[in-house]
Amino acid sequence: MHAMTRTTTAEPHQVDSLLERAADHDDNAWRELIALYARRVYAAAKAHIASPELAEEITQSVFVTIAEQLTTGKYVERGRFESWLFRIAMNRVRDEARRAKRHAIPTDPASFDPIPADPVSVPADSASELTHLRTALAQLPEADRTIIELRHHAALPFATIATILEEPVGTLLARHHRALRKLRSIMESANEGTTQ
């Protein structure tokens, strides 16, 4: 089995062709689709859920749903595969986050340990900035967080995000801008708190 680590983008007509072949039980087309999208789905899930295992589980369940819908002829979103895929993904992420919240043990946020840096060699300052950014991201309201995750982690164009969230592109751009300003403000407040 060859390793699949490619994460690129594909033209819509290429994706449509892969989908048609996958619906005809073509394993190679299915591999291609997974290679194109699994990592992005994983990144969006991981940004929200934080647990790598859970993010992988969500990614898997999203692809199982896609496979079922394709082979049973229920996929009707021709030309809008990305928005469909990430809508399924974000619904799963939200469900999982709700479930986690229900089972969460209340903890004083001040006592949180710093999030460990990924096992990739990075300068200490950069790692701490990223930890800082993740913490700030977690403090954003759900709706703002979703936009940021779809835009930056899932690497989706604004038009696709607008389709997923069923909002006009203009509104979405404004909301994205506002969300980022909020994020910056949270980070600045945290910085002020640590320097005082």
Partner: peptide, 22 residues
């Protein structure tokens, strides 16, 4: 900063993710 974080998280995906999903 967000794009940097997103790239780091995508790159830190467990090895063999796509193979396992397949």
């Amino acid at each position: 900063a967000l794009d940097h974080l997103a790239k780091r998280e995508a790159d830190a995906a467990p090895p063999g993710l796509e193979d396992r999903i397949f």
